[in-house]
Amino acid sequence: MIKPILLLLCLFVSIISVADQDHSGHNDNLLLLLKDKISLQKLITQYPALPAQQQAQNLAQQRVLFRHALSLLKDYVAIPESQYPNMAMYHDSLKSRAALMNDFVELMTDSQCKQDPSCG
């Protein structure tokens, strides 16, 4: 009697896990994007005060983080309307995704301006 119940429980957990997989990946990407954003903010802030050799290392780290973040961002913003239960949630998600994209644009601009003192 215990074996069939245990088997059904395992099957139920695996079905729930598969059903949640798409949304979970979306949330995982958001967390990774926020982590990269914070790391980039720190690197960009530190850049001007570093000696030339460390600036080069800093820029290399920035480049790696930007590439990683932009590949995640590409997937994160591509979530279709059909993944949301209603239009209001989809609309809120679009605003949130646009704000995150804008944050990364600002980081790129800030990074570029820290490297070029003539930047306005």
Rank of each mutant, 00 (worst) to 15 (best):
M1A: 11
I2R: 14
I2W: 03
K3D: 06
P4E: 04
L6Y: 07
C10L: 15
F12I: 15
V13L: 13
S14Q: 07
I15T: 15
I16P: 02
I16G: 09
I16D: 05
S17K: 07
S17F: 07
V18W: 02
V18N: 06
A19V: 07
A19S: 14
A19R: 14
D22Q: 15
D22V: 13
H23E: 12
S24G: 00
G25T: 10
N27M: 10
N29T: 08
L31M: 13
L32N: 06
D36E: 04
K42C: 11
K42P: 04
K42T: 12
L43Y: 06
I44Y: 00
T45A: 08
Q46K: 08
P48V: 04
A49Y: 13
P51N: 14
A52K: 08
Q55N: 02
Q57I: 06
Q57A: 10
Q57C: 04
N58F: 01
L59F: 02
L59N: 06
A60K: 05
A60P: 02
R63E: 11
H68I: 07
L70C: 05
L70H: 13
S71D: 11
S71Y: 12
K74M: 10
K74F: 09
V77L: 04
E81G: 09
Q83L: 12
Y84H: 09
Y84L: 06
N86A: 10
M87E: 06
A88N: 09
M89T: 05
Y90A: 03
H91N: 13
H91G: 04
L94Q: 11
L94I: 03
L94K: 15
S96Y: 07
R97H: 12
R97P: 04
A98M: 09
L100W: 00
L100H: 02
M101I: 07
M101T: 12
N102T: 08
D103M: 00
V105I: 06
L107V: 08
L107D: 01
M108E: 07
T109H: 13
D110V: 01
Q112N: 06
K114D: 03
K114W: 01
Q115T: 03
P117N: 05
P117G: 03
G120W: 08
G120C: 09
G120I: 11
